[in-house]
Amino acid sequence: MAKPSESLITKVEETAGGGDFALQDAERLAFQLTDDVPTGKAAPAKSSRAVSVEDHHGHRERLRARFRDAGDAALADYEMLELMLFRLIPRRDTKPIAKALLQRFGSLGAVLGAPIALLQEVKGVGENVALDLKLIGALAQRSLKHDIKGRHILSSWSSVLQYCHAAMAHEVKEQFRILFLDKKNALIADEVQGYGTVDHTPVYPREVVKRALELSATAIILVHNHPSGDPTPSRADIDMTKTIVETARVLGITVHDHIIIGKDGHASFRGMNLI
């Protein structure tokens, strides 16, 4: 089989970040299909670029086979990310991109939780790839939220923490979230009540209680994140929580806990005897 033209291979590699959409229909077909080599003539030597494309294809197939046969335990984090990037960035070596993403953000969860603009700062990650990574992260969050929707929250505490961590741990600004519960402590609603700066979110206790009454909630769980990574509550966090607890109690609403989410852990006001 004859190899694709040198200029076409070059174009494929140079535009790999945009996938085959960067090629015209005729060019795409020419890259995928080749003519038979005339009988009796030796096949022309393959260029280093063509060999490179074949090497990438073989590596991808081996990585897929390992995942298929042994599951995710057989792959390192960068290989899992590389495997996902195969379909997002066709015909390009995605290992360096996967490693660069992990080096930049620190973990798979942080990569999927990173803002689109920051993802695009990594060489090889365009807008489409960044959007796809965010979509995958959103799907993971929705799956975790499904695990707690309608269930007795207090008996599914680990699932609650997993969901909150996935949703908030890698936000670059503070956000204040409330889980509203019914009289059976099942989740009614999960709402972000406010967004703030890197170290502060304005919270109004009356608005928190007002929303709980609108939803007929009898209990709530407060959650906010610390973008610094340290979940230790501040004096302001403690005072604000105390005010919400006292305001809610008067109207028969229980505050089960206030959870602060950090990058690698969390702090529970209930666990620290602050509620």
Results as ranks from 00 to 15, higher is better:
A2W: 03
E6F: 08
E6N: 11
S7I: 05
T10E: 08
T15E: 04
A16S: 15
A22H: 05
L23Q: 01
D25T: 06
A30D: 15
T34W: 01
D35G: 03
D35T: 12
A42S: 10
A43N: 03
V51H: 05
V51F: 04
V51N: 07
V53C: 00
E54Q: 14
H57C: 03
G58D: 08
R60D: 11
E61I: 06
E61K: 09
R68K: 10
A70H: 14
D72N: 03
L75H: 11
A76Y: 04
L81G: 11
L83T: 09
M84I: 13
R91D: 15
D93T: 03
I97Y: 07
A100W: 02
S107D: 11
G109C: 03
V111G: 09
G113Q: 09
A117T: 14
L118S: 14
L119M: 09
Q120I: 04
Q120L: 02
G126M: 11
D132T: 10
D132Y: 09
L133D: 08
K134E: 10
L135C: 05
L135D: 09
L135E: 14
A138S: 14
L144I: 02
H146Q: 12
H146C: 01
H146I: 01
D147I: 00
I148N: 02
G150Q: 05
R151S: 11
H152R: 09
H152Q: 09
I153C: 11
I153Y: 03
S156F: 04
S156R: 11
S158D: 14
S158N: 14
S158A: 12
S159T: 03
S159Q: 14
Q162A: 15
A166C: 08
A166G: 03
M168F: 13
A169G: 13
V172S: 13
Q175L: 15
R177W: 10
I178N: 06
F180C: 05
D182R: 14
A189L: 12
E191G: 01
Y195K: 14
T201Y: 06
Y204I: 15
R206Y: 10
V208R: 10
V209R: 15
L215S: 02
A217N: 04
T218H: 08
I220D: 04
L222Q: 12
H224S: 06
N225C: 12
N225V: 10
P227L: 02
S234E: 00
A236V: 09
D239H: 07
M240I: 01
M240G: 07
I244Q: 06
V245L: 07
E246V: 08
T247I: 02
A248F: 02
R249F: 03
L251N: 08
I253V: 12
H256T: 01
I259C: 02
K263S: 13
K263D: 00
D264G: 07
F269G: 10
F269T: 07
